[in-house]
Design a protein around this nucleic acid. Structure first.
Length: 773
DNA sequence: GGAGGAATGTTTTTT
DNA sequence: ACATTCCTCC
C-alpha cells in the first residue's frame, strides 16, 4: 500500500485517501487526474474498504476506460474485465442486457449508431410524406436526441406551435419504430436505463446498495441525463467522486452542462473539494499564458496551475500573410525542431476546424514530412463494414429494418426502388417488420425479396452452431459481399477490411473472455443462474459486468461495433507529425505544439458569438490547446485564408492579445490592428477614433511593443478594388465606420463594417455606395 | 444499376 | 474549394 501512495503530492494524496463521502476534484490540465482516479480505486480495494464489484467508474470514451483498466491492472492483481469500469453508454448497455425484460427490450436488442439513426428518420419522413425541407432530417435527429437528454418521451414533449407538434409526432413514430425493430439509439441507452431505475424501486435499491463508490471522470462533460443516471445509481448512501475541470469544458455544443458540477456539490452535499493545481506537463511561460488567458472568463470555479519545471521557452507567435505562407512557416519550424532532435510524433499541429488541415497537409506533403491526421472514418463506420454488420444483425434479429434496408439490395439483386417502397407500404399496413412483410408481397419484387429472405434464413440456420469468427466468415461468403468487392475496381482495401472483420471477431472473443468454442448465437447460461429472485418477485441480476456473462458472442460483438467504432486516431509508434482539431487534442500532450489559425472568426469561431457563453467556450478551447504543450508552443495566424472557395481577410484573434507580453515572442512584425483586435475596445469611446487615425501613419502607438516594425500597408492585403481591412469608410445612411472583414471578391464581395453609430453591418460592395475616408 | 452532372452545405464529436 | 448527396439518363 505504501507503494501506491508514494510520490503523490499532498493534494493528490488527500484526494486518493478521502473518506467514503462524495467529493469534487478540480483537476487541472496535466495534474495527474487519471493517476488519482486509478490510485483511489486501488487504495479502496487494497485497504479492504470495498471489493472490486462494489464500485463503479464511469468515463466518456472507451480509450479512457481502457486506460483506467490497464493502469489498475498494473497496480493490483485483479481481473478488471468483470469490474464496472466503462463508458456511460457501455455500462448502460450492460444494465439493459441484464434487465432486458424489465426495460421492455428484446434480449438481442441492437444499437443504432448516428448514421443509422439519421437514415431511420429519413425513412420515417418519407413514409409519412413529411416535407424534409421544412423538417430537415438532421434537425429532427437533433430534436429527438435533445428531448431524450431532457428525459422527455414524445408524449411529454412541450409543443407550442404546429412545427413543434409535428416534430413531437415524428419523434413518436420514431419511438414506435425503434421499439418494433428492437433497436435503441445512443441517447436511448441512457434514457431507458434512467427510466428503468426510476420506476423499479427494488432494482434501484439493489444497485445503490451495491455501488458504495462511484467515480466519474470528466464530470464537466456530463449532460443532464448522465447526471440523472449518476444520481439514481448513487442514491443517498454512495460516495461519488466527481473529477473534472470546468476550464476544459468544451462540449456544451453537444449537451454537456458544466453546471452539473455546481449541482453536484449542492445536491450531494459535498464537503470535500480538492484542487489539483500542480502541473507536471508544461513549462512556466506556457502555463502562465494559459492561466492569464483563462482568467478572462467569468464563469469559473477558480484554479491556477503552477509548475516546478522552470520558465522554459517563450511562446513564439507568427503572423503570416496567407494560410499558405503560414503552412510554409510551419514546415520550416518543424524542420528546425527535428534538427534539434524532437521526434515528429512529439509535435502536434492543432487547428480549430478540420477544413484547415488541407493546406497544412499540402505543405507537409510537398516537404516530404510524414504526418498523420486524426479524426477520419473509423473501422466500423466504413461502408463495407456497415454492410457486413447489417448481415450479422439480421442473424440475431431479422426484424431490424435498418439492417434489412441496408442490405436487401446490396450486393445488387434486382430489388428496385419501387419494390422497396411497396414492401415498406405493406409492412406499414400490416404493422410488420420488413422481413415479416415479405410473404405478403406479390409480383416480381415479392419473389426477389423472397429469395433474399430465404438467404437470410439459410444463413441463420447454417450458422447456429458456429463460433463468432466462423459465423462472420460464413456470412461474408453467403452474402457475396467479398465477391462483390473483388469484382469492383479499387475494391482491394474493402476486401482487406472485410477480412480484418473476421480477425477482429476472433480477437474480440479472446479479449472478452468468451470460450473459444462458444456458439456465437447462444446466450450464456449464466444469465439465468445469476438472476436471483427477491422476495417481492423482482429479478435482480448480481453478476459481474463482463460481457460474456450477459450476452451471446454475437450480441456482444454487435454492441462493441456500435459503441466502439474503432480507432479514428493515427497509428501510435510511427514517427509522424500529429494533425488534429483542438477538440481531439484534449487529454493528449506533446513536446511541441503548433496552434494555427488564430484569427477572429475562425478561433474564436464566428458561430460561437451566436450562442450564449460561446465566447467563453472558445476561450476554454484555446486554454485546452495551450496546455497540450510540454516545452515548446507556437501560435500562428494568417491575414488571408481560403475558406469555402473564397478568400477571407481576417484579423488576429483576440486571444493573442490576452497572452501576457512577457511570455511571448513575436517572430513576425506585429501589425497594427489595434482598433478592433482588443476584446474590450469600445466602439463608441472617443479615444478609439484617435487610435484608428494612427493607422494611416506609419508610427507605432503606445499600445504597441517597444519595437517598431514595417508599415502595415505592406502586410495588410488590399483587394482588387482597393478595399482592405482597417479602411475607414463613409456611408450615406450609416455614417462613418471601419472595415473589419472582407468576404469574397469581384462581383460577389461583401464587407463587414463596424459603424461608429450603428454597429456592425454587412454590405455588398457592388451595391453599397461607400466613400473611402 | 451505375455513370456523370447538379445541388448543397460546410465548427467542434463521443457513444 | 471540395466532398457528399441527389437526380437524371441510358
Amino acid at each position: 500500500m505504501q507503494n501506491l501512495l508514494q510520490n503523490l503530492n499532498p493534494e493528490q494524496y488527500a484526494a486518493v485517501t478521502l473518506p467514503a463521502e462524495s467529493a469534487l476534484i478540480l483537476a487541472g490540465a496535466g495534474s495527474g487526474k487519471t493517476r488519482v482516479l486509478t490510485t483511489r480505486i486501488a487504495w479502496l480495494i487494497q485497504t479492504g474498504q470495498i471489493s472490486p464489484s462494489g464500485l463503479m467508474a464511469v468515463t466518456f470514451t472507451n480509450k479512457a476506460a481502457k486506460e483506467m483498466q490497464a493502469r489498475l491492472s498494473a497496480m493490483l492483481p485483479i481481473n478488471t474485465r468483470s469490474m464496472w469500469i466503462g463508458t456511460f453508454h457501455g455500462l448502460c448497455n450492460r444494465l439493459l442486457r441484464a434487465h432486458f425484460r424489465d426495460a421492455s427490450l428484446p434480449q438481442t436488442f441492437q444499437i443504432l449508431d448516428s448514421q443509422d439513426q439519421l437514415s431511420m428518420v429519413k425513412r420515417i419522413l418519407k413514409a409519412n410524406q413529411i416535407d424534409d425541407d421544412k423538417y430537415p432530417p438532421r434537425n429532427v435527429v437533433y430534436f429527438i436526441n435533445n428531448a431524450k437528454e431532457q428525459g422527455l418521451r414524445a408524449a411529454k414533449v412541450n409543443t407550442y406551435d404546429p412545427t413543434s407538434r409535428q416534430l413531437a409526432e415524428i419523434y413518436g413514430i420514431y419511438e414506435e419504430q425503434c421499439q418494433r425493430d428492437g433497436v435503441v439509439d445512443f441517447a436511448e441507452l441512457l434514457l431507458r436505463t434512467v427510466e428503468l431505475l426510476a420506476s423499479n424501486q427494488p432494482l434501484r435499491e439493489h444497485y445503490q446498495a451495491r455501488f458504495k463508490h462511484i467515480l466519474v471522470d470528466e464530470f464537466q462533460d456530463t449532460n443532464d441525463l448522465q447526471y440523472r443516471w449518476i444520481k439514481l445509481m448513487a442514491g443517498t448512501q454512495s460516495a461519488v467522486l466527481a473529477v473534472g475541470d470546468d476550464d476544459q469544458s468544451i462540449y456544451a455544443f453537444r449537451g454537456a452542462n458544466v453546471g452539473n458540477m455546481a449541482s453536484f456539490e449542492r445536491e450531494f452535499r459535498v464537503q470535500h473539494r480538492i484542487k489539483l493545481e500542480q502541473n507536471y506537463r508544461s513549462h512556466g511561460h506556457i502555463l502562465d499564458s494559459a492561466n492569464a488567458l483563462i482568467s478572462n472568463n467569468t464563469e469559473r470555479l477558480g484554479k491556477n496551475l503552477r509548475t516546478d519545471a522552470g520558465q522554459g521557452e517563450l511562446i513564439r507567435i507568427q503572423e503570416a500573410p496567407s494560410d499558405r505562407e503560414e503552412s510554409q512557416w510551419l514546415v520550416e519550424q518543424i524542420k528546425e525542431l527535428t534538427r534539434q532532435g524532437i521526434a515528429s510524433s512529439e509535435i502536434a499541429i492543432l487547428y480549430r476546424s478540420n477544413a484547415q488541415s488541407r493546406v497544412i497537409e499540402h505543405a507537409l506533403f510537398s516537404a516530404s514530412l510524414p504526418y498523420k491526421v486524426y479524426g477520419g472514418l473509423r473501422f466500423f463506420e466504413r461502408a463495407e463494414i456497415k454492410h457486413a454488420i447489417a448481415y450479422l444483425q439480421l442473424m440475431d434479429n431479422p426484424h431490424n429494418d435498418s439492417a434489412f434496408l441496408r442490405v436487401m439490395n446490396f450486393p445488387a439483386r434486382g430489388i428496385g426502388a419501387k419494390g422497396q417502397e411497396n414492401l415498406q407500404d405493406v409492412a406499414r399496413q400490416h404493422g410488420l417488420s420488413l422481413y415479416a412483410a415479405v410473404p405478403h408481397l406479390g409480383g416480381k419484387a415479392g419473389s426477389t425479396l423472397g429469395a433474399f429472405v430465404k438467404l437470410i434464413e439459410a444463413a441463420r440456420f447454417e450458422t447456429q452452431m458456429l463460433t463468432l469468427p466462423e459465423l462472420v466468415k460464413r456470412v461474408l461468403e453467403m452474402s457475396t459481399l467479398i465477391q462483390h468487392y473483388q469484382n469492383e475496381k479499387d475494391g482491394e482495401d474493402r476486401v482487406e477490411n472485410l477480412e480484418q472483420l473476421v480477425s477482429s471477431a476472433a480477437q474480440f472473443i479472446a479479449e472478452e473472455g468468451f470460450a473459444n468454442d462458444a456458439p456465437a448465437l447462444m446466450g450464456p447460461a449464466s444469465i439465468a443462474s445469476t438472476n436471483i429472485v427477491q422476495g417481492d418477485g423482482v429479478e435482480i441480476l448480481d453478476a459481474d459486468a463482463a460481457l460474456n456473462t450477459l450476452m451471446s458472442p454475437l450480441s456482444a460483438f454487435l454492441s462493441h461495433a456500435s459503441l466502439e467504432a474503432g480507432d479514428n486516431q493515427a497509428q501510435v509508434g510511427q514517427d509522424a507529425l500529429q494533425l488534429m482539431t483542438v477538440h481531439s487534442a484534449k487529454g493528449l500532450e506533446f513536446d511541441a505544439v503548433f496552434i494555427t489559425g488564430l484569427e477572429e472568426g475562425l478561433f474564436p469561431h464566428e458561430n460561437s458569438a451566436k450562442e450564449t457563453g460561446g465566447m467563453e467556450e472558445e476561450r476554454r478551447l484555446m486554454y485546452v490547446a495551450i496546455t497540450r504543450a510540454r516545452q515548446r508552443l507556437f501560435i500562428s495566424f494568417a491575414q488571408t485564408r481560403m475558406l469555402h472557395g473564397q478568400i477571407r481577410y481576417n484579423t488576429k484573434s483576440r486571444f493573442l492579445t490576452e497572452l501576457p507580453e512577457e511570455n511571448v515572442k513575436w517572430l513576425s512584425p506585429k501589425v497594427q490592428q489595434n482598433w478592433f483586435s482588443s476584446p474590450k475596445s469600445a466602439w463608441d469611446a472617443d479615444d478609439q477614433y484617435s487610435q484608428r487615425s494612427q493607422f494611416s501613419g506609419a508610427g507605432s502607438s503606445s499600445y504597441q511593443n517597444k519595437v517598431s516594425y514595417a508599415a502595415p500597408h505592406n502586410i495588410i492585403p488590399t483587394n482588387e478594388d482597393g478595399w482592405r481591412i482597417g479602411l475607414s469608410v463613409r456611408h450615406a445612411k450609416f455614417g462613418e465606420g471601419i472595415i473589419i472583414k472582407l468576404e469574397g471578391s469581384g462581383s460577389n464581395c461583401r464587407a463587414h463594417i463596424q459603424f461608429y453609430k450603428l454597429g456592425l453591418k454587412v454590405l455588398d460592395l457592388n451595391i453599397a455606395k461607400l466613400e473611402k475616408v
